[in-house]
């Protein structure tokens, strides 16, 4: 296996410094939100960036992760790490079922199928008693990590969220740069050729889909613990759009793009919410259009192209 390129080492070091230093300067809840969505976008990017599959239904896995973690922490009294883990397991199972159906089609159909299946999950969540309907699951306890460390302070919780994000990020980095990841990229570039070389393409796609769904579930579960809340917003289609937008802005198929995109979009939502109010959706739509028409490589993709080094 090749060594990690210098450009990526530097970028990772910079990200690490930012993660460690920022809670001393910025509001930890805001940073935790960025990290949760960064993980969500990284998980989404595994499919669009490295397998070439546009899933338009990642809200289903994020939202189920959120609901299940909230339920486990509040009703079953799970410790936060076990609550998040249960959210991830349910999201992975859901991802296995939906992925199995969706990989029968590719391209635009794949996007429509994942979107439709996710909307089915949304309707189930609207009706199911355990989600609390319009109220959602409120007052989720943050609890004690491993039953020992009290997470009620934002500062303490921040380090847990940072660790979760870094673990997910490094895990996906490893996946993408493993022989398994090479096959994924081969499928993205030329699926027919990957088939003719004897790879069981559907199996690879399905495994990637399950990994992506599971990490989206981790992101959703962590979000539920941070905000002590799981609602229908987490599972509705605009949430899928957020993952797409963050990845697009940061750079599809780059390693550091999705976290950068999450940082940009969440910052924008926070800063503009006070000035623009409800116009934020319009601005987000505008960013979508602008990115697709003129900025398809995204922020990190552009930098990568300028430097000629992978990021």
């Amino acid at each position: 296996m090749n060594a990690v390129p210098l450009s990526q080492r530097i970028a990772f070091a910079a990200m690490l410094v930012l993660i460690v230093a920022s809670p001393f300067v910025l509001y930890p809840v805001f940073l935790m939100k960025v990290l949760c969505f960064a993980l969500f976008a990284v998980a989404f990017n595994l499919l669009i960036g490295f397998v070439g599959l546009l899933s338009f239904g990642h809200a289903a896995y994020f939202g189920m992760g959120s609901y299940v973690s909230a339920h486990a922490a509040k009703v079953w009294g799970f410790t936060p790490e076990l609550a998040i883990l249960s959210g991830a397991v349910v999201a992975a199972l859901l991802g296995a079922a939906f992925g199995w159906l969706a990989i029968r089609r590719s391209g635009i159909y794949f996007a429509m199928i994942t979107l439709a299946l996710a909307q089915m999950v949304y309707f189930v969540c609207v009706q199911a008693p355990f989600t609390g309907g319009e109220d959602g699951i409120q007052a989720v306890p943050r609890g004690h990590l491993f039953g020992v460390v009290d997470l009620s302070s934002d500062f303490a919780l921040y380090w847990v969220v940072a660790a979760v994000f870094l673990a997910g990020f490094l895990f996906l980095y490893r996946v993408v740069h493993s022989p398994f990841g090479q096959v994924l990229k081969a499928i993205r570039e030329n699926e027919a050729r990957a088939v003719s070389l004897g790879y069981r393409v559907d199996d690879y796609k399905l495994i990637a889909f399950v990994l992506s769904a599971a990490l989206a579930g981790v992101a959703g579960g962590t979000k539920a613990i941070v905000f002590q809340l799981a609602t229908l917003t987490d599972v509705n289609w605009p949430m899928s759009g957020e993952a797409v937008l963050m990845t697009l802005v940061g750079g599809i198929g780059t390693i550091f793009g999705p976290p950068v995109g999450a940082l940009v979009i969440i910052t924008m939502q926070n800063e503009l919410a006070t000035i623009l109010g409800a116009w934020v959706t319009v601005v987000q739509g505008g960013i979508f259009v602008a990115c697709v028409l003129a900025f398809r490589r995204g922020i990190v993709g552009e930098i990568q192209a300028k430097l000629g080094k992978p990021l």
Binding site: L54, F56, I108, A111, G241, V244, L248, T281, V282, Q284, G285, G286, I287, F288, V289, C291, V292, L293
Partner: peptide, 11 residues
Amino acid sequence: LLLTFGLALII
């Protein structure tokens, strides 16, 4: 798909 999704958000 992405472009028309963005347009839908705007409208």
